[in-house]
Write a protein that binds this DNA or RNA. Structure first.
Lengths: 216, 216
DNA sequence: TATTCTATCTATAAGAG
DNA sequence: TCTCTTATAGATAGAAT
């Protein structure tokens, strides 16, 4: 836009490139602000020079804007935090955590109160997907944990049984017993109770209390 | 930069503002790219229109750039989590919920990956409850939003109908029509399509296109 | 709304300090 | 590296479509 027309490709001459960077950077920042003001838009602009220096503009809070961006963009927060498998260990980790914290913070503040009213339908949709994904992961982990605990308990019981106690259920019956996932999330005690409930009737009081103590 | 010089402040006329937004947005995106190419810089640009629509440019991966930004900017995660904006309401709210937010933050970062394995069953249970609550709030807000949009559209349609158009569905039928929540989050147009789908058959082309245009 | 058409206004490439 | 100057390329306000 000046004396001569130039092609849009990396400027070879280093000095010229730096000069151009300085000029155009200013222009870009200015125009970013103008757009935000004139059109009531939210604008975030981040520029890193080739030497790594940072320049930025944000019409409001950069954090807010980036958080909002996260909601709109591929809500793959996980995918985002994963890809840096190869390089900078500490660095990428820090930035990842920072990002995570920010994201979560924003999400939390949104799901906490009525901030939700400020969100668009699309944003709500993304939040929903996000929360659902998290919830599913939690549920899955919980179920696995419970299944493991139950397995452990069964093992312990079988050990006891093999030590001479007279079982009210055989080993085979225990293995085939169906555990109701609805009754999870409690202590070992309640799980044990659950196992007992698979029997046809309640155990005699003496043995029951005895076993419960050992399992608790 | 044209017929007349304008002052850099919010354009009052809505139409003019939108037109300007469209033009300047393009210009800004173009210049962002030019700067990146010419000067070998890393540039990230995020623009939200006043209506919440997202436009973006990133010279490389937006994720990488934002991560890089996090490192350079206030490396301070604490300062970041405090961005309680500018309102007293928010602030008091923030301090009141401060601890809880921090806790949830930790929990949420845990539900991201396999960190869940470090949690006890009880902790998982808490997480589950938390997420369920948030999810419910999001869903409720979304449903309300959708219901509102639908109501608006119905009102518009009824207005059209009352202006003499011969309806294929009566007002009562419209009110009783069941809207499928799966099809939300889109423009008025798609919702209108949805409403039409509640009819026994597709509307004649002439009227359909006519109404669609007026609703869009 | 988004484009197209101009007349103008801005940004900026070169060059000099 | 930044600034100022100046000529020119580029962006865009307003109007029309």
């Amino acid at each position: 836009m000046a004396r001569e027309k130039i092609k849009i490709r990396k400027i070879d001459n280093i000095t010229a490139r730096q000069v151009t960077f300085s000029k155009r950077r200013r222009g870009l920042l200015k125009k970013a602000e103008e757009l935000a003001v004139l059109c009531d838009a939210d604008v975030a602009l981040v520029i890193f020079s080739a030497t790594g220096k940072l320049f930025e503009y944000a019409s409001s809070s950069m954090q807010e804007l980036l958080g909002k961006y996260k909601l709109h963009s591929t809500n793959n927060v996980d995918k985002v935090s994963e890809p840096s498998l190869n390089l900078q260990l500490v660095e990428s980790d820090e930035s990842r955590m920072g990002k995570e914290v920010l994201d979560r913070n924003r999400e939390l503040s949104q799901l906490r109160g009525e901030d939700l009213n400020g969100l668009t339908l699309d944003e709500l949709q993304r939040l929903e997907t996000l929360l659902e994904g998290g919830l599913n992961r939690v549920l899955q982990t919980k179920d696995e944990r419970i299944a493991n605990e139950i397995a452990n308990l069964q093992q312990k019981m079988m050990n006891l049984i093999s030590k001479g106690k007279r079982p009210r259920t055989t080993a085979v019956e225990l293995e085939n017993s169906v555990i109701n996932p609805e009754d999870q999330g409690q202590s070992s005690e309640s799980v044990a109770t659950n196992v007992y409930s698979c029997n046809s009737g309640p155990p005699p009081e003496d043995d029951c209390s005895d076993t419960s103590l050992k399992l608790a």
